[in-house]
Design a protein around this nucleic acid. Structure first.
Lengths: 204, 204
DNA sequence: TCTCGATGTTGACATTGTGTACATTCGCTC
DNA sequence: GAGCGAATGTACACAATGTCAACATCGAGA
C-alpha cells in the first residue's frame, strides 16, 4: 500500500484519457490533503492528471461541483470506515459504539482537509443528490448504533437528543484535534474520546 | 443599532484614509459573513472601503495575514461574549456554566464564517502572536469555568479531560448546526445544548 | 464506412493576489 | 512657518486561476 503503484485511473491511451472522472477524484483527494481546500486548484489537478484544465468540465460543471464530488467520495469512505469499525469490533454493543466513535475521530485525523470539506459549508450550500444520500446513510448508521447501544427501538421519539449529543462529542473532538487545540498520539486521543463517550453512556 | 450609521472607521478625509486598518477589519468581518471565506476577496474589500487593493498591504502583509487579523478580532468578540454570559447570568456556577455553553453555540450561529475561520486551518497553519494570545485567553476562561463548576482547583491534574469533553460538546454542536446537520430555533438549540451539558455535569 | 455523440484541446477573458516604483500627506525639527 | 523623512496610498504590471466558446479527435452503432 505504501508503494506508489499506479492505479487503474492512471493509464491513458492517447487523445482520450479513458478514466478521467475516476482519476480526477483519486488525484483530487490527494491534492486536497496536500494543499488544503483554499489552495486547491482545478488547473493543477488537471496538470497532474495530464489533461487540459477544460477537460475537467466534461465531468464536473464547475470547481464547486468537483469539490462536491470529492466530498461525496469522502462520505462513502467515511461510512465504510464506520461500518467496518462497528462490525470488526468484538464485544457488546457498548464496545462497538466506542470503537465507532474512535474511528470517527481517526478518520478526521487521517483526512483533515477532506473531513472539513465533507462537513463544511458545502453540505449547507450546494446539497447535491449524491452527497445528500451519502450523508443520510451516515446519519442512519449513527442512529442505529445509538439505539442498539442504549437498547431502545430506533424510532423511539426522544432518541434524537441522545444521538445529537453523542454526535456532537465525536464531531467536536474531531474539529478540536484538527484545529490543533487538542494534541496527542492516536492512542491517547482514542482514550480521551472513549472516556468522554463512556461518561455519555452512563448518563443516558 | 439597526440604522446603518457610519462608524468611526468610515470617514475619509482625502488622500489618506485615516483609519484604514479599523475600516478593513470592520468591513472585512461583514464581507466575510456575506461571501464566505472561499469567496472573500481582498480587492473587493478594498473597493468597499474605497481604497486601492495595494493599500491593504500597508496594514496586512498578505491576504492570509488579513484573515488572521479578522480571526483575532473575532476571538476578542468571542471571549467578550463568553465572559459576558458568565457574568450576566444570575444563579450558581452550574447555571453560569450552561449559559456560557449556550453563548458559545450562539456565537457560532451568529457568525458562521467567522467561527469557521477562527477555529479553522488558520489556527493550525499560521499561529500569529496575536491570535495565539486571544486563543489562550479563551481557553483559560473555559478552564476556570469548568473548575468552578466542578468545585475543583484549576490546576487539578485530571481536570483537562473534563475540560476537553465539555469543549467538545459545545464545539461539536456549533459545527453540526453550522453544517446544517441539526436544525432549530435559538431556544430549541439552547435547550438541546443545555441538556447535553447537563448530562455531562452529572457524570463528572 | 459514415456519422454522431462523447471527450479533450486551444485560445481568450475577467478577476485575483501580489511585487515594484511613484505620489501624497502627516509630524517633527529648525 | 519651511523643509524633510516616515507613513500611507496609488499606478502599473504580471502570473495564476476559473470559466466560456469554438474546434479537434476518438469510439460505437447505422
Amino acid at each position: 500500500m505504501s508503494t506508489s503503484r499506479k492505479s487503474v485511473a492512471d493509464e491513458r491511451s492517447g487523445y482520450h484519457h479513458g478514466n478521467l472522472r475516476e482519476a480526477l477524484l483519486e488525484h483530487g483527494l490527494a491534492l486536497l490533503e496536500e494543499k488544503g481546500e483554499s489552495q486547491f486548484s482545478l488547473r493543477e489537478l488537471a496538470r497532474r492528471v495530464g489533461v487540459t484544465a477544460n477537460a475537467v468540465y466534461r465531468h464536473f460543471s464547475s470547481k464547486d461541483v468537483l469539490l462536491m464530488g470529492l466530498a461525496a467520495e469522502g462520505m462513502r469512505q467515511f461510512t465504510a470506515s464506520q461500518a467496518s469499525a462497528w462490525g470488526v469490533t468484538r464485544g457488546n454493543v457498548a464496545e462497538k459504539f466506542l470503537a465507532s466513535g474512535c474511528a470517527y475521530v481517526r478518520f478526521a485525523r487521517n483526512n483533515p482537509a477532506l473531513f472539513r470539506l465533507m462537513f463544511g459549508r458545502f453540505i449547507v450550500e450546494h446539497r447535491s443528490e449524491e452527497l445528500e444520500h451519502e450523508s443520510r446513510q451516515a446519519f442512519a448508521g449513527l442512529t442505529t448504533a445509538v439505539a442498539a447501544t442504549l437498547g431502545v427501538p430506533e424510532d423511539s421519539g426522544d432518541i434524537s437528543g441522545a444521538v445529537n449529543a453523542a454526535w456532537a462529542v465525536v464531531h467536536g473532538f474531531s474539529h478540536l484535534i484538527l484545529d490543533g487545540q487538542i494534541h496527542g498520539s492516536d492512542e491517547e486521543l482514542d482514550a480521551t474520546v472513549a472516556s468522554a463517550l463512556g461518561h455519555w453512556l452512563v448518563s443516558n
